[in-house]
Amino acid sequence: MSIQHFRVALIPFFAAFCLPVFAHPETLVKVKDAEDQLGARVGYIELDLNSGKILESFRPEERFPMMSTFKVLLCGAVLSRVDAGQEQLGRRIHYSQNDLVEYSPVTEKHLTDGMTVRELCSAAITMSDNTAANLLLTTIGGPKELTAFLHNMGDHVTRLDRWEPELNEAIPNDERDTTMPAAMATTLRKLLTGELLTLASRQQLIDWMEADKVAGPLLRSALPAGWFIADKSGASERGSRGIIAALGPDGKPSRIVVIYTTGSQATMDERNRQIAEIGASLIKHW
C-alpha cells in the first residue's frame, strides 16, 4: 500500500480515536468582514473530516451557485459507476470541434485522439475544463442524473440543472445549479471518507483534487509548508466565487472547508484575496 493510500485508509480509523476539536470565532469575524469588503453574501462552513461535526458556519443553509465545484461531485458519480462495473477509467471518448465550449484548455488539444474517462476527470478537476465536464455528464446521463446520484447519497439540496457554460449564470434567487455550504461539505465528506466509493476510488478523487492547478490564489496561497490540501474552485457570473477543500497539517486532511460568495461587484483578484484571507484566519486559529 502506498503512503497516499495509507493516509486515506486511516481516516475512518482516526475517527474513533480523534482528539476533540474546537472552533475559533475569529474566522467568522473574517467571513463577515469579507461580506462587507465584497458587498456580497458569503457562505462558509468548516467540518471535522473524521466526526462530521460542524466546527463553524455562516449562512450554511443558504443557496449559492455551485460553479465548477460541481466537477468533484461529477467525478464522484463517474467513479461510483466504475466501482459498479458500469464504466472504465481507461475508456477512450472521441469528440468533435462542435463539442468544445468556452474554457477547454485540455480537451481542445485532443480533438484527433480523444481522451480517456480518467483523463477527462483529471482535466475537469485539475484544470476546470468545461468540455471535459460536459463529456463526463453525458456518460452518466446528464445533469438530472447527477442530481439523482446526489439524492441517493442523501443530499436533497444540491442540484445540477444545466450544462457548461450555462450553469454559471448565477441569477439571484434561481435555485438551478446551486447548493448550500452545509450540504456540499457533508456530500464531499461522504465521497472522501464514506463507503459509497471503494478505497481506490476515494484515493483517485482526492488525488485529482490535490493536483488542482487553478486554485492557487485561494486557500493554497495561505497554506503553510507541510500542510495538505485537495480542493476545487469555481467562478461564475455576478461576482460569484467558491472553493471546496479537504485540508490539514502534517500532510493529511482533517477538515472540510466550503466557501461560496455571490453578488459582488468586486474584481476577481479581490474575491480571491478575501477567500485567501479567510483561509489565513482559519489556519492561524486552527
Rank of each mutant, 00 (worst) to 15 (best):
residue 242 G to C: 05
residue 27 T to Q: 01
residue 203 Q to R: 14
residue 128 S to R: 00
residue 139 T to Y: 03
residue 62 E to S: 07
residue 183 A to V: 09
residue 56 E to Q: 06
residue 121 C to G: 03
residue 15 A to Q: 11
residue 81 R to V: 05
residue 11 I to C: 09
residue 265 Q to T: 15
residue 115 M to A: 07
residue 223 L to Y: 01
residue 70 F to Y: 04
residue 116 T to G: 02
residue 21 V to A: 14
residue 247 L to H: 00
residue 151 H to L: 13
residue 251 G to V: 04
residue 107 T to G: 03
residue 24 H to Y: 03
residue 254 S to Y: 07
residue 90 G to M: 09
residue 148 A to D: 15
residue 269 D to I: 09
residue 77 A to E: 07
residue 17 F to L: 10
residue 83 D to V: 01
residue 25 P to V: 11
residue 233 S to G: 11
residue 252 K to Q: 12
residue 25 P to C: 07
residue 71 K to R: 00
residue 12 P to S: 14
residue 86 Q to K: 12
residue 241 R to H: 04
residue 66 M to I: 13
residue 136 L to V: 04
residue 126 T to N: 03
residue 139 T to L: 07
residue 39 G to A: 11
residue 145 E to G: 14
residue 235 A to C: 03
residue 221 S to I: 07
residue 108 E to P: 05
residue 149 F to V: 09
residue 189 R to Y: 14
residue 175 E to P: 14
residue 60 P to Y: 04
residue 176 R to T: 04
residue 225 A to V: 13
residue 240 S to R: 01
residue 75 C to W: 08
residue 175 E to L: 12
residue 266 A to N: 05
residue 238 R to W: 12
residue 12 P to C: 13
residue 240 S to C: 11
residue 198 T to V: 06
residue 285 H to S: 07
residue 73 L to R: 04
residue 204 Q to I: 14
residue 106 V to E: 10
residue 274 Q to E: 07
residue 176 R to Q: 11
residue 188 L to W: 01
residue 15 A to E: 04
residue 190 K to Q: 07
residue 165 P to Q: 03
residue 154 G to A: 03
residue 169 E to G: 08
residue 152 N to V: 13
residue 113 D to N: 10
residue 124 A to S: 14
residue 239 G to L: 01
residue 240 S to F: 04
residue 168 N to T: 06
residue 180 M to A: 15
residue 102 E to D: 15
residue 146 L to V: 08
residue 94 H to Y: 00
residue 20 P to I: 01
residue 70 F to C: 05
residue 72 V to A: 05
residue 83 D to R: 01
residue 277 E to A: 10
residue 135 L to Q: 05
residue 183 A to Q: 12
residue 68 S to R: 00
residue 224 P to F: 00
residue 65 P to G: 02
residue 173 N to Y: 13
residue 218 L to N: 02
residue 106 V to S: 06
residue 135 L to S: 04
residue 154 G to V: 01
residue 173 N to E: 15
residue 139 T to D: 11
residue 223 L to M: 13
residue 57 S to V: 06
residue 149 F to R: 05
residue 97 Q to G: 14
residue 261 T to A: 08
residue 190 K to A: 13
residue 271 R to W: 04
residue 12 P to T: 15
residue 189 R to Q: 12
residue 195 E to A: 07
residue 11 I to V: 14
residue 111 L to E: 05
residue 215 A to E: 03
residue 153 M to C: 13
residue 25 P to H: 08
residue 65 P to Y: 01
residue 215 A to T: 05
residue 234 G to A: 04
residue 276 A to T: 07
residue 206 I to R: 12
residue 67 M to N: 15
residue 183 A to I: 06
residue 265 Q to M: 14
residue 186 T to G: 12
residue 190 K to N: 11
residue 32 K to Y: 05
residue 281 S to G: 03
residue 92 R to C: 07
residue 2 S to E: 07
residue 195 E to R: 09
residue 207 D to S: 15
residue 275 I to T: 00
residue 187 T to I: 03
residue 9 A to T: 15
residue 86 Q to T: 09
residue 235 A to T: 04
residue 70 F to I: 03
residue 230 A to C: 06
residue 149 F to A: 06
residue 78 V to R: 00
residue 24 H to D: 06
residue 89 L to R: 04
residue 178 T to H: 00
residue 145 E to W: 06
residue 224 P to K: 02
residue 110 H to Y: 06
residue 2 S to A: 12
residue 214 V to Y: 03
residue 132 A to G: 02
residue 87 E to F: 06
residue 275 I to L: 08
residue 60 P to M: 13
residue 207 D to Y: 06
residue 221 S to L: 06
residue 22 F to I: 07
residue 76 G to S: 10
residue 196 L to Q: 12
residue 126 T to S: 10
residue 80 S to Q: 15
residue 13 F to M: 14
residue 280 A to D: 12
residue 91 R to Q: 04
residue 157 V to G: 06
residue 188 L to C: 05
residue 228 F to Y: 15
residue 166 E to C: 12
residue 210 E to L: 05
residue 200 A to W: 07
residue 79 L to F: 01
residue 116 T to E: 12
residue 191 L to I: 11
residue 218 L to A: 03
residue 154 G to W: 12
residue 202 R to D: 01
residue 195 E to V: 04
residue 72 V to S: 02
residue 264 S to G: 14
residue 106 V to C: 13
residue 259 I to M: 04
residue 166 E to G: 10
residue 13 F to H: 07
residue 285 H to C: 08
residue 261 T to Q: 06
residue 284 K to D: 05
residue 89 L to Q: 03
residue 221 S to K: 14
residue 88 Q to A: 11
residue 282 L to G: 01
residue 274 Q to L: 12
residue 205 L to I: 09
residue 174 D to E: 06
residue 80 S to G: 11
residue 24 H to S: 11
residue 32 K to M: 10
residue 217 P to I: 03
residue 277 E to V: 08
residue 200 A to E: 14
residue 114 G to A: 03
residue 28 L to R: 05
residue 60 P to T: 11
residue 255 R to A: 01
residue 153 M to G: 05
residue 222 A to Y: 06
residue 173 N to R: 11
residue 165 P to E: 02
residue 268 M to K: 06
residue 254 S to V: 10
residue 252 K to C: 11
residue 89 L to F: 11
residue 118 R to A: 14
residue 16 A to T: 12
residue 133 A to T: 10
